[in-house]
Design a protein around this nucleic acid. Structure first.
Lengths: 230, 230
DNA sequence: GTCTATATATTGATAGAC
DNA sequence: GTCTATCAATATATAGAC
């Protein structure tokens, strides 16, 4: 059950000894505390990405992090605090490739490299991708605001760039928003639907080779699909 | 709404009065019982697709179906029984468009119509799509066998057809498996990531028009991407 | 078939000793 | 900081009256 949406400025339990360290207010904790927190976040990412927020239990996370439940709750008062921190940390990483898309470059290479980076993210950070997918799939209760705010703004900006390219005849005309959706969908598919991809490809192709294959395929598909008529 | 093709041998609690009706063994229930069950399945689809298996509660489903919890449990002994039946009913529907892809037709129109049908499924049965996405995303514990069995066999078969087309020079050479993945990913995206799609497109484009736009975009992308060089 | 009441288990979170 | 014990809230499922 829906655990009480808290706005929260996040008065976390463990604080540094009254600002003695030079880290300022932003990180009121010792290095050991930070290491423990990272350990918890790492374990939580495993569990949340596999079971979703509701399906994950503090017990599982604690066990996976090698500590007792009360001990874990000493570092994060509530289950939701862990989840929120993971989501927040994830969003920047997730958006980085799109932010990186530059209006100065040539359209086709720029799009090709965007696809590459997104695909590499699926390969290297599949749990983060699934965490986010789980959240969005279930209505994104904790991030709708961000989707309608930052994300929309960023996509609007990049869509303008793409439209500009199209108007210059450097790209076949098409809806830039749906183009971005298509790139998201195809690249994240390899992280989010990993089980299905592996099952269909079978044992023989179960290795990491599928990402190289996917890169080849997707670049071909999008570059030929977007190349302006000669 | 789609429903629920039931395979089911599934000796459920309520059975007809000793085969008096002409329905035989396959449907050991009265019409009223079936209607109640469908009512429950309908409500359960709402709840499961939004919260996943773990996140959904019998209380929610019962309330949504307008009955008491014990009454619901009279028709389905366990929560998991409802879920399983939904998944089973879903799989046939989900695979139908791919089964339909025919080696007799011309490649490009055949692929175009596959995309269309998948996109229509996202538009008309988004809850089923999300139910399945939830399941796969969380490791597909209840359907891995099916993915490695029926699904793989079906995809293998269709991949051969596609490869045949490519060898005849009717289609640009590309990996048929990744082509199928790309079609799945792009079309289901509009159901599974609906919240995100709406958020990015904004209020102005919140209506059903996004499916028409998507159809146009995806057909262009795939047809140009797959058309053999002239 | 449907209901009220309840048994039983799980889980998020806290108390308080050390 | 970490632990054992435990509370309080939910949630699955059942008992048994009607």
């Amino acid at each position: 059950m829906p655990p009480i949406k808290v706005k929260m400025l996040d008065p976390k339990r463990p604080r540094g000894r009254s600002g003695k360290s030079g880290e300022g207010r932003a990180r009121p904790q010792t290095r050991i505390q930070k290491e423990k927190q990272d350990l918890i976040l790492e374990a939580a990412l495993d569990v949340f990405s596999l079971h979703g927020f509701r399906g994950a239990t503090i017990d599982q996370i604690a066990e996976s992090a090698g500590m007792s439940k009360p001990n874990l709750l000493y570092y994060f008062r509530r289950k939701e605090d862990i989840y929120k921190q993971l989501i927040a940390g994830m969003l920047d990483v997730w958006l980085a490739p799109l932010r990186h898309m530059n209006s100065d470059g040539d359209p086709l290479p720029e799009i090709r490299s965007y696809i590459r980076r997104k695909l590499e993210m699926s390969r290297d950070f599949p749990r983060q991708s699934r965490l986010f997918a789980n959240e969005v799939l279930q209505g994104a209760p904790r991030v709708v605001d961000m989707l309608e705010g930052d994300l929309k703004a960023l996509v609007d900006e990049k869509a303008k760039i793409i439209t500009g390219w199209m108007e210059q005849g450097k790209l076949r005309r098409a809806d830039p928003y749906h183009l971005i959706f298509a790139i998201w969908a195809t690249t994240q598919h390899y992280a989010d639907f990993d089980v299905q991809v592996r099952a269909v490809l079978g044992e023989g192709r179960g290795g990491e080779s599928r990402f190289a294959e996917a890169a080849t395929f997707l670049e071909e598909l999008f570059l030929h699909g977007l190349k302006p008529d000669a």
